[in-house]
């Protein structure tokens, strides 16, 4: 079926079977492979993108549900010459290792900071509930997001 929507500001009309997932549209139809798939139960958050400005798991959205929406992926927030502040903070704080969870983590982090002013480090940790990282132990991810949120890291207990 035909679906019209925008990705990273660019209009697309695609023709895919209804049982196609948003993440499949992104990765396969549009070749935007920055969005990753890390699980099959909507738990890991590696596939997080923004749909009309909200973080969603693109593995749990069907292509037909996209008609008329705007999607933003990791490729749409900045590039290596012009990094989004969250991208820059992740690099500055060594908030990634293998990089596989990173695009989803950054997209969720942006949503978190935009929607919740004055985040402290505990709130950041809770806000990452839907994103699994196996490499970093989250320590530096929390630091990176805190630096963008301009929140002070929680004092050590």
């Amino acid at each position: 079926m035909k679906v019209s929507f925008k990705v990273n500001g660019q209009a697309h009309e695609i023709d895919v079977p209804p049982n196609t997932l948003l993440v499949e549209v992104l990765r396969e139809t549009l070749e935007l492979t920055g969005t990753h798939v890390g699980c099959d139960t909507s738990q890991c958050g590696a596939c997080t993108v923004h749909l009309d400005g909200r973080a969603v798991k693109s593995c749990t959205v069907l292509a037909p549900q996209l008609d008329g929406v705007e999607v933003t992926t990791i490729e749409g927030i900045g590039d290596s010459e012009n990094l989004h502040p969250m991208q820059a903070a992740f690099r500055e704080c060594h908030a990634l290792q293998c990089g596989f969870c990173t695009p989803g983590m950054i997209m969720q982090a942006i949503d978190l900071v935009e929607k919740n002013p004055g985040l402290d480090s505990q709130a950041i940790r809770e806000g990452l509930e839907g994103n699994i990282c196996r490499c970093t132990g989250y320590h530096n991810i929390v630091r990176a997001i805190a630096s963008v949120a301009d929140a002070k890291p929680a004092s050590v207990k």
Partner: peptide
């Protein structure tokens, strides 16, 4: 290596 990972270019 981070530059490619944070931009989705890995």
């Amino acid at each position: 290596e981070d530059l490619r990972f944070i931009t989705g270019d890995g």
